[in-house]
Amino acid sequence: MKNDIILSGVGGQGILSIAAAIGLAAVENGLFLKQSEVHGMSQRGGDVQSHLRISDKPISSDLIPYGFADLIISVEPMESLRYLPWLSEKGWLVTNSNPFINIPDYPSAEEIIAEIKKITNHLIIDADNIAKQSGSARSGNMVILGAASPYIDMDYESLQNAVKKLFGKKGTEIVEANLRALQSGRDATPM
């Protein structure tokens, strides 16, 4: 088993929580893991990415080679396209549809959707709206993780456990909200 996952978004959108959740689940499953993350300028509205590799065999490179990623999980639609060179031929692209516009030359929604649709295996969901409807407006990132979960080769239950662990310190209310968000994202995925 091997999953190479690129996580992308804009600073402050919570991609590191997604990485942490998958990471905890991988550890629970006794898998090898390498996760490289970008630090430093990430709070200031720039693009951020993380390479996450999980496998049942030892992993060599901390970076995913081009064309190897099984999955791109993006919290922002334009950012999902920035990492296409990493996506394998059969790889899945799962992204939020809500743009984060903080640059003057941000492309139109139609242009972005058209490019995403060129990828055979893609899934675009309105994570912000789904999060709101599930009563966890601030957990859009967990909705995306839920939507991507069928493409991750680990039991859904282990992702749920990871979310419980990850948010455990913040109290049951926050844990419940994030679990709801995770589930509503998963329900949004055609299986």
Partner: peptide
């Protein structure tokens, strides 16, 4: 269509 997104002031 993917444009640079440089960091900026919060």
């Amino acid at each position: 269509i993917v444009k640079m997104r440089p960091p900026s002031f919060c």
